[in-house]
Design a protein around this nucleic acid. Structure first.
Lengths: 208, 208
DNA sequence: TCCGCCATGTAAGTTGTTACATGATTAG
DNA sequence: CTAATCATGTAACAACTTACATGGCGGA
């Protein structure tokens, strides 16, 4: 289970299950998500395998917390995973499937609506990642070239998201263009003039 | 379950479970995969719900086949799904997680190896998709602008894969560059001269 | 005859989700 | 006092994977 290793990785800093959930929601959610109902049992399982240890901590506010940290064995396990080469799973993308089967509706307008909705979602996510990046850039003077190793790797991961989402937005824009062209092969110029397309919200190329 | 709708979509043409598996492996695998052990029970479930019907067919070679096709109700269900707007799940990408936690190894060389392995896998997949596209282009004179609606949508889906994989390759190349720069800030030109990088296998921009 | 492909299935296990249950503390 | 947030957990279900079981048929 990848989640086990991700928890081992995150627990370089001691944290409770609740803390970890917040990290998933705010920091690493763009490449891995997890629910509390999955986090808690997994932490217990890892402790049973002696890859984590825990202690109860009296919290200032709220009830008792259980704070976990990695053991030497946990760190070894993490390293073995890290050195084992990449795991590229096959991505199941329901939205591509939907597009693929849209001809069953026999309505190019529906295709266009689907693509526009997708375009908007991708753009929103892209903006969220860009905000993360910007916040970082503004709060850390070492960004990007003088960053310590840990932060440098986070940057690479973040840039994966940026590259990927940008490609998604560009694909959606391009597909919308192709569908419009197909729906109305004659009046391309007329339309292009009349309607300043959404794709005018140009997404600048990513740089470092 | 998306798989149910995908089967309904694929069964616009009658097919057996075994046939469908081959379609997953050769045609739609780049956005959805499925095992026979999942396909067979799902087909049975859909038939019980009267969204599919089946008949036994004597095959020329091999044992009896069970050929499924959609019913009117099945087609309605598919349309409802298609009109319900996009489903963009959160992608869990173990390889990004791995990169994110690489600092635990404290070895930039390991990061470089990971990125190179990723680069190669992405490039291989990209080539596979391009072959699919090329084969198509060569065998169908209507490609790309005169394609019938069904094929046009397949093209959009395929281009999603092309855009996405290309972004992945570009990200990997760019990350490799950044890591090298970081590992050896002084000797950039020297190295760039000595080693014609893998990234020289330039991946041309996608066009229609 | 044996191997590979055709063809359908079951069983057991993993991973992940949604819904539910419980209770402490604190800010308004 | 009451709502929000902190905090931990269980149960039931859904989706998917890997391994196993069975057998026909055709070509080397």
């Amino acid at each position: 289970m990848s989640l086990e290793y991700i928890l081992l990785g995150l627990l370089g800093e001691p944290a409770s299950g609740y803390d970890l959930k917040k990290i998933f929601d705010t920091e690493v959610g763009y490449f891995w998500a997890a629910e509390l109902s999955q986090i808690y049992p997994t932490l217990k399982r890892l402790e049973k395998q002696h890859l984590l240890r825990s202690h109860h901590a009296a919290a200032k506010r709220g009830p008792r917390r259980i704070v976990y940290e990695t053991t030497a064995a946990g760190n070894r396990a993490l390293r073995v995973w890290l050195q084992a080469g990449p795991e590229v799973g096959d991505e199941r993308q329901a939205f591509v499937a939907k597009l693929y089967f849209m001809p069953a509706l026999d309505d190019l307008g529906a295709t266009l609506r689907l693509l526009s909705a997708l375009r908007q979602r991708f753009a929103t996510r892209l903006e969220a990642l860009r905000s993360l990046e910007k916040l970082w850039e503004e709060s850390d003077p070492r960004y990007p070239n003088e960053l310590p190793t840990a932060e440098f790797h986070k940057l690479l991961a973040l840039r994966k998201g940026l590259f990927s989402l940008q490609a998604h937005v560009e694909w959606a824009d391009d597909s919308i263009r192709l569908v419009r062209q197909r729906a109305d092969p004659a009046g391309v110029d007329r339309k292009a003039k009349a309607k300043p397309e959404k794709s005018d919200q140009r997404t600048a190329k990513v740089r470092v």
